[in-house]
């Protein structure tokens, strides 16, 4: 039965996509679904955000902790990613079921974010070789309805962009020459991360002869393969990656990169607007969270 249903959808989706610029839910090939973003939803994190993209529901929490810099980059801080595919999303993720998908997504996130070009890692360094801030970025998948990468990247960008509660630190040296880290007493005395170059991910799904952005689960099932493109607000491409089985011809990859660049660049401005609006409201903002 499921197979038949899928075949039916496949036909419908293929027809629509190839014939005209219209998809099953009425969107054009370069349209996103309705997106909801809310920041600062979990109060004991340095930054957090919840993103709803269609039925896909993502919660990201970032915790800043002091640790040791990695050996290969002694004067930089780092980001650590962990993706928890919780059983909330689907019973298949119960126990260790979601681990494989979680690792795959986390690895892609390392490629996209954990480098000097995307995040200003130097500002996360406290003392070279000894202390740096490690941003533990934990992603929680609450509901999956396709296009996880884009939703996660929006949530990560939003969580990084919020006035992160990374306290200012000072190095104190006493007479014996031992150094001590002193955190600022004022909770509002925080460092704000430069997030100008933090990219957003756009996943393009190749369906028939065309490619679509923000594919739903059904569309994903009909696609041959997809291409992940990460784009900064200036339109610079920082990462390209093919995901899923199937192969793509170089010609279509160029086309997809071009679309990804255009769509990705346009994605940044509205996100920034939402975040600015939230910040300007400050404490008076009514927190919605999961209520309402």
């Amino acid at each position: 039965y499921l197979h038949v249903a899928l075949l039916f959808w496949q036909q419908v989706i293929l027809c629509h996509c190839t014939l005209d610029d219209l998809r099953v839910d009425g969107r054009s090939c370069e349209d996103y679904r309705y997106v909801e973003v809310e920041t600062d939803v979990v109060s004991n994190t340095s930054g957090s955000a919840r993103v709803k993209l269609g039925h896909t529901d993502i919660l990201v929490g970032i915790k800043a902790e002091i640790g040791r810099p990695k050996l290969d980059r002694p004067n930089k801080g780092c980001l650590e990613f962990f993706v928890d595919c919780s059983a909330n999303a689907t019973p298949e993720f119960e126990g260790r079921g979601g681990e494989e998908l979680g690792t795959e997504i986390a690895n892609a996130l390392y490629r996209v974010y954990d480098n000097e070009r995307s995040v200003d890692l130097k500002s996360l360094c406290i003392t070279p070789m000894e202390h740096c801030w490690i941003l533990y970025t934990d992603v929680l998948l609450l509901q999956c309805d396709g296009n996880l990468f884009d939703a996660i990247s929006l949530a990560i960008k939003a969580a990084l962009l919020t006035p992160s509660k990374i306290p200012k630190v000072q190095m104190m040296e006493d007479e014996e020459g031992t150094t001590e880290i002193e955190l600022s007493d004022d909770p509002f005395d925080c460092v704000r991360l430069n997030t100008e170059n933090v990219p957003c991910i756009v996943t393009l799904c190749k369906i028939g002869q065309r490619h679509v952005v923000d594919a739903t689960l059904q569309e994903k099932a009909c696609s041959v393969a997809s291409l992940l493109v990460s784009v900064t607000s200036k339109g610079t491409i920082t990462c390209v990656r093919k995901i899923g089985g199937g192969s793509l011809d170089p010609e279509s990859i160029y086309e997809m990169i071009e679309t990804g660049k255009r769509v990705g660049k346009a994605l940044h401005a509205p996100l920034q607007d939402i975040l600015n609006k939230e910040e300007s409201l400050g404490k008076s903002r009514e927190k919605v969270g999961f209520i309402g």
């Binding site: 004991n44 928890d84 533990y136």
Partner: peptide, 9 residues
């Protein structure tokens, strides 16, 4: 299944 988000505590 009981689980706690890694950032919950």
């Amino acid at each position: 299944q009981y689980s706690m988000a890694t950032f919950s505590t």
